[in-house]
Structure formats: C-alpha cells, structure tokens
Nucleic acid binder design. Sequence first.
RNA 1: CGGGGUAUAGCGCAGUCCGGUUAGCGCACCUGCUUUGGGAGCAGGGGGCCGUAGGUUCGAAUCCUACUACCCCGACCA
Length: 488
Amino acid sequence: MAKEITPRSENYSQWYLDIVKKAGLAENSAVRGSMVIKPYGYAIWENIKEDLDRRFKETGHQNAYFPLFIPKSFLSKEADHVEGFAKECAVVTHHRLMNNPDGSGVVVDPSAKLEEELIVRPTSETIIWNTYKNWIKSYRDLPLLINQWANVVRWEMRTRPFLRTAEFLWQEGHTAHATKEEAIQEAKQMHDVYADFAESVMAMPVIKGSKSESERFAGALDTFTIEAMMQDGKALQAGTSHFLGQNFAKAFEVKFLNNENKEEFVWATSWGVSTRLVGALIMTHSDDDGLVLPPKLAPIQVVIVPIPKPNEKILEVANGITTKLKSKGISVKIDIDDKKRPGFKFAEYEMMGVPIRLGIGMRDLDKGVVEVARRDTKEKNAIPLANIEDYIENLLVEIQDNLFQKALNFRKERTSYVDTFEEFKNVLEDKGGFIYAHWDGTAETEEKIKELTKATIRCIPLDAKDEKGVDMISGKPSKNRVLFAKAY
RNA sequence: CGGGGUAUAGCGCAGUCCGGUUAGCGCACCUGCUUUGGGAGCAGGGGGCCGUAGGUUCGAAUCCUACUACCCCGACCA
C-alpha cells in the first residue's frame, strides 16, 4: 500500500504524525519547530475560526489587531506574567543585514542594533493593556470587548504538529470591565462558548473546570479550562479563559472614573484557543484508516466518486445531487479524475476523513440507487436516488451525533473514581484515562502526585458534587473530587 | 535542555562495519497499450552535490570532527 498508517495500538504518537502527514494537514518546515499548514489542514482551521468568530461576535466582541512585536520593557511590568513566558521568547535585536565583507553571504549589521529589544509576542496581554490605558477613561468606555486572530511564538523545547509548535495561530480575547463580578461573568461566558463549540461543533466532549493555582495562566487569578480525553487516555487542554483580576490594570495603570467620579482600576479577562484544536480533532475521532472529521468542520462533507469512471449519465446524476446538496449548504466534491481507480479514491477520501462518500455506477443507477458510505462506521448502503439529499442531510447530523457519543462513551469507559493512592497508581498504570480523586487543595500534595505519577490535576470540575472524603496522600479532608490525568 | 536513535530520489529503504570506476530497490511520477464496483498489469522513461560544513586520503555515501533537522524517552508548555 502506498500510504500506510502506523496503527494506534503499535505507536500512538507515530499514528498521530502519520495522519497529519498523510491526510495532507501539515508538514515540517525548514524552521525548527514550525510547521507548514497545508491547504486541507488550513481549511479545517478556517472552519473552526469561522464558527468561533461568529460566536464571539454574537457575544458582543469586536476583532482588532495588535503588533507582533512587544518592547522588552513591557514584559517586566507584570511579575508573574514574565516569569511564565520569559524562558520561551524570541527576541529581535537588530533591524538590518549586510553583505559579509568576505563574500560569504549576509550577516547582521552590528550598527543596526535596536535601542530596546523587541519580543515576538508569546501572548498579547502586555501590548494590549498598554494600549487600553489610552482607550479607557470612563466607566462609559466599559466593557471593552476585543478579540484578535493572530500568530504567536513560544520557543518550546519539544514540538509536535498542531499540538505544540514554536509559532502557532490562535485567537486571544482581551476584555476590560468596571467590576470584578462582570469580569468573572465574562470569563465564564467565554468558557461556556468554548465548551459548547467543542461539544457541538467538534463533537469532542469536554470537562469544564477551573485550574489549580499551580496550573493557572501566568498572571491570572482564576483559569477556566476545557479538558478533552484523547484516544490514548491522555488529557488535552483545549481552551482556557482567564480572570485576570486587576493585575494588568495595575501593571499598566489602566484606570477609569466611575459614576461617582472616583478613580478605579479596571478588571480584566483573556481567553484563547489555538491551532491545537486541529490536533485535538485528530486525536479524538480518527482511526487506523486515517482522519475522521465531524461533518460540521469537514472541508468536504460529501464526495462523489463515479464508478468506475465518469461518464455522461453518471455526471448528470452527480451534478443533480450536488446542486440539491449545495442548496442545503452542504459542501460537495465530484471526483472526475479518470486516471485513478475507485478503490484508490475510496482509500484516499477515508484518509482525508470525508464524512460521506457517494459511489455512483451504472449498475446501481439501473436500480435507481447510489452507494452511500459513511466514514465514521464504514457502513455502506444502497440508497434510492429519490430525495437522497434529505437522506444525506440527516446522515450528516447522525454522523456528528455518533462521533460525539462515541467519544463520550470512550471517556466514560476510561474514567475512574479512586480513594487511595495505591489504587490511583494502579488505575493510572493499567487503564490510564481520567481519574477523579479527593485532594486537600494544597500545592504540596499536587506536586507530590505529579512527581510520583506524572499525572496532574487537569481541573477542579465546575459540576463537582459535594462529597466528603480525604486526600489520597495527606489524609486531610476534602469536599469534592478533582480530575487527574496525564496530559499533553 | 539531558539520554538514546536516525539522516541516501517526493515517500519507504538497502549499501556504510571492511573507502575503489556508472549508488541500487519498492512505491510515487512521465509515455504507451491493456484495464476499471476497494489502493490495476505489462513495457519503456525521467529524477540523487548520499542532511550541512570542514578534515583524512591518490580516491569518501562509507573514516574523523562540528553543526542542523527529525524520531523515541525525560524535564517545560496551549
């Protein structure tokens, strides 16, 4: 076979890399840790972006764009923030190149050294809050609800396509509010937007919760997260929304006059998701035959394969179906390539995760049917041509639901509740996945568990029921269980 | 950044240990014919500064040094 994928059971991370490569999503570039997102992979990101952008606008946000470069001094203004990002910043020190006198090519012109170095943004809080200082004077200027679609750079030690790259695409929302309550409400609202998007569009079930202090965003008072389970049982943080308190307002002196003419610092949030979501999508649904995409994000929702190759009658039927599907907003591709045989195309579109494939051949047409193959279950059925567009429309919905249910069932099977550390270690070893256990709320036990098992607290679930228990390590009392897992 | 591995055509590999004329194979690609309901067959053909830079040698894919990238395992992280 031309394009074999390493089975998940054999080597999960190789399987992931094979899919990224063979489905044509991305490839490594000439730049360390940076990938080229290829057209098919970018089309998925565009679909993610389009849906999220609509949701942001529906919740009152506007898009804007801030500079890629941040003056170095800005990073020093918020202590926790700089500590979190300092170790992974790309720094611009010069602005000119010159021919090397020895003729060996270009070198940095030493006379073009910058007065103050520029940092390539690892996130934009600092440059944005420095700007907000000028935009906010009165309570009438609030709330300020801005989102930015951008690239950021974090110089990571080890990278993987989509999951962690030195440069990545994301959106970052940065909002300013008059009150603490309103800011917390905003952070929670965007947390909900992410969770709903993950579940209803990506068909990826997530656990909503807040981060423990040690896992919090650098500079945040509270970080809300959505955590998804990948097919190897590991957790992936898929989106975060932060309540930043007045930390950045104080660091950048962003004050407003309230309606009593008193000066106050504003309250802030920031929230983001990245191209990591494409990686999450892959690791949630795909199988050993390739990518599996939820219909709502698939660049091609239906592919029509003439069997064995296009002829006038087949194309007439295919075009008829296409017109009807397109009028329902369904994206369709007719593969008219007559150099490749059907079997090849079948495998190819399965690799690409196209949700529905229609096989149209004379043998079926004589009986008034076409073959409908669904990617998620691999089922094939002969479906009458009459009103096939309704059948397909419904099937897309069914596939979307099925993918979500399948992922949800998988998560249920791989979720455990344990009370002792012995049990915790055993479950982690044998079964992996998510583990709910009691925790005394201290960083010490959290750190100890991480040291001993590599598992971390993914979140303190929002819907955690009150349940008295004792911490597995310290034996101290606990009011509810928190979510542990090994994570990406 | 630490430990281990790899780098030869677009992809996957052999050749490297033990240096020797023109560097092979499979897939992919091009041409032609025959095919065509799950990755077609035959015939012919194109494609390589052997990761990069130095060094040793009459001669380097092969030996030595450095660098870079990728993979696996850690530490860090969305």
